[in-house]
Computed example of a mutant assay.
Amino acid sequence: MTAPLPWPLAYTVSGDDCRTPVPLGFAAPLAEAVRQLAELGYDGVEVQVREVTAHDADALVRTVGGSGLTVLGIATGPVAGQDGLTLTDPSPDVRRHALDRLLGAARLAGALGVPLTLGQTRGRFLPGLEDVQRAWATGAVRRLAEETAACGSRLLLEPQSRANTSLWHTPEQALAVVEAFDAPAGLVQDTHHLEAEGIDAVRAVTDHARVTGCLQLAASGTRGPLEAGDPRLPALLQALHQGGFTGWLTLEHTQDDDSREAAARSRTALTRAAATLT
C-alpha cells in the first residue's frame, strides 16, 4: 500500500552550470532529468549549482517548469566539489571567490523564492589555523545568511560529517551558528551525515523538525537508493509529521548506474512508508 506524502518530494539534480552531473544526483542533463522525474511523480528538484546569479532564474524556471516540476531549493555543493573553493582556504582570493559564488547562488535562490543550502563549501581546518579558519567561516556564513534574507529567502545550514568538513557536524552545532545571526536561517538534515556522526536520525528529526527546512534521505550504510520496508522511514516520517515539519524531502544518494530506477525505488519506498502515517 502507498500513500501521498504530506510534503513536496524532490530529487537532487545538477544545474546546467555544473561541469559534470553531481555524484549524488540524477545522472543526466537538467532538462532530461526533470522530464524523467516528472514522469515518476516527483514534485520538484533541489538544484546543485556552481556559478550562478539571479539572472539565471528565468532559464531555470523554464527548464524545470516545462516538465511540470518546481525548484524547491538551491544547493551549493559544486562550489567546493567541482572547483575546490571553500570559506576556510588559507588564500584570501580563494575565500573571496568562494563567497562570491555563494552570494550569486543566494541571489538566484531569492529570485526563485526558495531556500539556499550550504554544506561542504565551509571547508576543512589545517593544523594551527583552526581558530582563524573558524572565524573566517562564521563571518562568511553570517554574510551569506544576511544576503539570502535581503533577497527574500533564507539560508539552511547542513550539519555534515567530519569526512566532508571540519565545521558543525551536529544539528546542535549548526543551530548554535544560525541562531546567532539576525537573519532568518534553519537546518538541512541528511540521514547519511547524521549516521556517519553516530547520531540517531529519528531523534535528530524529532528534536529539530520545526527548524529543519529540508530532510535529505539515503539508504542506511550504503548511501544508495531507499529500499521498501526500511524500518527507519515510517519513524522518520512520523517524527516530521508530529514535529510540525513544513519543508521538503530530497533524495540525495548514489545512483546505482541507473538514475531513473534509483529515483523510482526511492519514491516507492517513501510512499509505502507514508501509508503508516497517523
Rank of each mutant, 00 (worst) to 15 (best):
A201S: 14
P8M: 04
L60D: 09
P4C: 01
G221N: 07
R162K: 09
T222V: 08
Q120K: 09
E195N: 06
T148C: 10
R265A: 04
F245P: 00
L85G: 09
Q82T: 03
E195S: 14
G68Q: 00
A201M: 13
D257E: 15
S67H: 12
R162H: 13
G186Y: 11
A176T: 11
T165L: 11
D17M: 03
R50V: 13
A145D: 09
V52N: 00
R95C: 05
V178T: 15
Q82Y: 07
S153L: 07
H253T: 14
Q189V: 14
P29K: 12
D207W: 05
D230K: 12
L69Y: 09
Q216F: 01
G81V: 03
P115T: 05
Q120L: 14
L187R: 00
G104I: 03
G81T: 04
A149W: 12
L72E: 05
R272S: 02
T86R: 06
V178R: 02
V94I: 11
L187F: 08
G81Q: 11
V177I: 08
V71M: 14
D230R: 07
G77Y: 08
L60G: 07
V45P: 01
A150Y: 02
G113F: 09
T88L: 12
A80D: 13
H169P: 00
T2F: 00
R265I: 01
G152S: 10
S266E: 05
Q173Y: 02
C151N: 12
G77M: 04
A111T: 11
L236H: 12
I199L: 15
L187T: 04
P8N: 08
V71Q: 08
L167N: 10
Q242R: 15
R223C: 08
A145C: 07
S161Y: 02
V47P: 00
R124V: 15
A163M: 06
A183K: 00
R203G: 11
T254W: 10
A145N: 09
P184V: 05
L40V: 01
A80F: 12
D93E: 14
A38E: 11
S220W: 06
V64N: 13
R260G: 13
D93I: 04
L156M: 08
A3S: 15
T250W: 01
L249E: 04
R265S: 00
L118T: 07
R124T: 14
T12F: 00
A137V: 15
A140E: 13
I74M: 10
A54G: 06
S259D: 04
R134L: 14
T138D: 14
W168P: 01
L240H: 00
V52T: 13
A135G: 07
P92T: 06
Q48T: 12
L69A: 02
L108M: 08
D207R: 12
D230H: 13
E51A: 13
T276C: 03
T138Q: 13
R95M: 09
D257C: 09
A31F: 03
V34L: 03
T148I: 03
Q160L: 15
N164M: 11
L144G: 10
D83E: 15
G244I: 11
E147F: 02
A264W: 10
E51W: 13
V211P: 00
L116T: 09
P29N: 09
L102M: 06
E172N: 06
R232N: 10
E51C: 08
A275E: 13
L102I: 07
Q189T: 10
G119D: 12
T222Y: 11
A219N: 06
L116N: 09
W136G: 04
E147A: 15
V71W: 10
T86N: 04
V13A: 00
P234S: 05
V64G: 08
